[in-house]
Amino acid sequence: MAPSSAPAVGFLYPGYSAEDDYPRLEGILADAGARVRLPLVHTDIGEDAHRVDALLEMGSARRLADRVEEVKRHDVQAVVWSCTSASFVFGWEGAKEQVRELSATAELPASSTSFAFAHAVQALGAERVAIAATYPEDVAALFTSFLKAAGSEVVSMRGSGIITAAEVGTWGREEVLALARGGDHPEAQAVLLPDTALHSAAWIPDLERELGKPVLTANQVTVWEGLRLLGQPVDCPALGALFTR
């Protein structure tokens, strides 16, 4: 892991599910020669439900602000709201306001996983994408709308109907591979798996070999976005096409 003096991006992570992806990602980056810390602080999510009303409360300015001072104690230079659904659920403009408020509260550059996906798709040069979501269909459809607002063409979208992050966090390699395969589309130039509750850090090369195209997962793009905010790109093929320069 990186020394305590290394640059750091802090993550506000909702509840407990796949937070162990972050030390795993830090270790993979360290193996690639990156000198960066990825401290994570858990937020109080209220109700664990992929339901619009619960997600709006989960991503409220109050809940995020409650943990800002804690994450700043890690001497971070940027902060990212590590949640897709409780950012895109606010819509494009609402998600921008969420990030503006987080940045103002933290007095640091800020972003969220939803914008991480939008920026990552642009960085790959992918015009057409497929969404393989753990969420119910109505929530996944809101992510489709968010990506369209970012200028992406969504050629297919598949929801899995999973209500809680806790359940998603129990999925292993085979379930994640099946999710990606089921959500792929021949016309898609990249496949997106938008849920930070989903473990994926250890399997990104497997996912891309299986599908034969870039795969973007929530925790992967969230960390990439943090490095982007730090102005510290990293060449790390072990984390897929997005990290391969």
Rank of each mutant, 00 (worst) to 15 (best):
S5M: 05
I28K: 04
E175K: 15
A166K: 15
L40G: 09
S4F: 09
K213D: 07
Q232N: 10
Q189T: 09
V9A: 11
P237D: 09
M58N: 13
P186D: 10
S103R: 08
L64M: 15
E107I: 08
L239K: 01
R24A: 15
R73H: 12
Q98A: 05
Q189S: 11
E107S: 13
F146L: 07
C236W: 00
E26N: 06
W92Q: 08
T105A: 15
T217M: 03
A150S: 13
D66W: 11
I28M: 07
G212P: 10
Y22T: 06
V191P: 12
Q122I: 05
L227V: 02
L56W: 15
V9F: 02
S5T: 12
E57I: 14
P3E: 06
T43G: 10
Q232D: 09
E19I: 10
P237H: 08
T105C: 14
V71L: 02
P109E: 03
A34S: 09
K148H: 13
G172D: 13
S152C: 15
E208C: 04
P14W: 01
N219A: 01
E167C: 09
A61Q: 11
S4N: 10
E175M: 14
D44E: 13
A120K: 01
V215I: 04
G172Y: 11
L142Y: 13
S4A: 14
V155F: 09
N219V: 01
Y13M: 09
V99L: 02
D21Y: 00
P214I: 01
D53P: 12
D184P: 12
W171P: 13
T164Q: 12
A30D: 10
L193K: 04
Q189P: 11
P194T: 12
E101G: 12
A120E: 02
R245I: 05
L40N: 08
A202H: 14
A133I: 04
A123F: 01
K72H: 06
A65D: 12
A6D: 07
D235R: 14
V52M: 12
S114M: 02
A149C: 15
A166Y: 13
G183I: 00
S145F: 13
L12D: 00
A18R: 01
L193Y: 03
R51D: 15
S114Y: 01
A78V: 08
L38P: 10
G212Q: 08
P7V: 06
L25N: 00
V155Q: 08
D235E: 15
T222L: 01
P194E: 05
A116N: 03
V121C: 06
L192R: 04
N219G: 02
F11W: 04
R35M: 12
V129R: 01
R63P: 11
T144W: 04
T164N: 10
V168H: 03
V234K: 03
E174R: 13
T134C: 12
D20P: 07
G151L: 05
G240N: 00
A54Q: 11
L147R: 07
G46M: 09
N219E: 00
A140T: 11
L230H: 06
L142A: 14
P233R: 07
E208W: 00
D206E: 13
G15H: 03
V76T: 06
A188H: 11
G27E: 13
